[in-house]
Amino acid sequence: MTSVVLSSTSKPAAERIRTPWSEFWRKFRRQRLAVASGVFLLLLVVVALLAPWIAPYDPATPDYEHILEGPSWLHWAGTDDYGRDILSRIIHGAGISLMVGFLAVTVGGIVGIVMGLLSGFYEGWIDRIIMRICDVLLAFPGILLAIGIVAILGPGVENVIWAVAVFSIPVFARLVRGSTLALKRAVYVDAARAIGVRNIILMVRHILPGALPSVIVYFSMRFGTSILTAASLSFIGLGAQPPTPEWGAMLSAGRSFIGVADHLTFFPGLAIFVTVLAFNLLGDGLRDALDPKLSQV
């Protein structure tokens, strides 16, 4: 399926040069929701990087004269039970959520990709062992696996990253294995092998690029899922601990004020929702642009 992307898009070299990249861009641009999501996420990254400068207040300094105030011109998202500005805390929390999501998917993705390449390329016993490991990892529902890992490592943001990374591994491994199985029989891989290219080079330079389109789509989708899972772990008290301005932890701290000061839970939850939604919409758009079989549908 992925080899089709490369061969079918590089076919007509008529008036304009059509590289796979320009073809992708042409299709992706038409998905307005996905483009908007991408722009939003870029902005969010900028906001997270510039948080100390653009946040109107310090996220940690209490202000006991403005406790539990609703949204106002001074505090756009209100203040919490310590009088801390919620918008500032959300801005500072953006970096934490994006970082956790990014590291978790990257670690899980790299391990999964290596396992998938080895599994699909060599087949035989390596394949069987790796696929059994994936079966077992998939035998636990994601968050349960994460809770088990946090129970071993202890609560905290760093441990949540490992916990969330682990359940991305089997997804990437299976995906890359499938592509590898198909691509390693391609003529250009045979040709490379015939001129004596080493196995590791075959895998990394000749097979992996063919699997990349689906890896990118999954990367975006898992990014959202990872942020959601990390926030869930913080919410049930196993992830980031207060006073860290992590979105899930903020929601957890604010839940005792439901019915009294709803903005404590509303705004952090909205931040999680919008961010995860943007990653999922981006993933959908990437899939439609990168996978011609699906975009025909």
Binding site: F235, L251, T265, G269, I272
Partner: peptide, 26 residues
């Protein structure tokens, strides 16, 4: 499909708290 992708992205703990707020407390 927009409703569906929103449903996938919705943090369940947030939805739960919103529902409690609206339908139980208010």
């Amino acid at each position: 499909m927009l409703v569906a992708v929103s449903g996938i992205s919705l943090p369940s703990f947030w939805l739960g708290l919103l529902l409690i707020d609206w339908f139980s407390v208010r």
